[in-house]
């Protein structure tokens, strides 16, 4: 029966390892819905505003909306940028804590 318990613990460790392996790329997307239109506002009609991809190896890329200012130069929409980057930071912090927890558990289960 002792091996049953060991098998259970190994199974838990394998599941955790599988989750950590699958956590290679993080994507954060921000979209908007216009309200008050005749047709009504639906989640499916949300318009993309910004998108960021972050890989575990540190590579990351963002697509951000640009607007022409009075002189005709392109600049980032500050409100959308701030809103999106807050979510990016929240997602990064959350991922770090979640992966940290899983790795800590994995270490103790294998130890």
């Amino acid at each position: 029966m002792a091996s049953d318990f060991g098998t259970t613990m190994r199974g838990v460790a394998e599941k955790i390892a599988h989750y950590v392996d699958g956590a290679a790329t993080l994507t954060v997307e921000t979209r908007f819905v216009e309200v008050g239109l005749d047709k009504g506002a639906k989640f499916e009609d949300a318009k993309p505003a910004a998108r960021t991809e972050i890989k575990l190896d540190g590579d990351n890329s963002s697509v951000l909306p640009m607007m022409k200012n009075e002189s005709g130069a392109l600049e980032v929409d500050a409100t959308v940028y701030e809103l999106h980057m807050k979510n990016v930071q929240a997602a990064i912090d959350y991922r770090a804590k979640m992966v940290g927890q899983l790795l800590s558990a994995l270490q103790s289960l294998r130890g």
């Binding site: 989750y19 699958g22 956590a23 993080l26 994507t27 954060v28 997307e29 921000t30 979209r31 908007f32 819905v33 216009e34 309200v35 506002a41 989640f43 949300a46 809103l83 979510n87 929240a90 997602a91 990064i92 959350y94 991922r95 979640m98 992966v99």
Partner: peptide
């Protein structure tokens, strides 16, 4: 894992 998609009221 943190994949996050947010739809805001404009």
């Amino acid at each position: 894992f943190g994949h996050l998609d947010t739809i805001w009221r404009e």
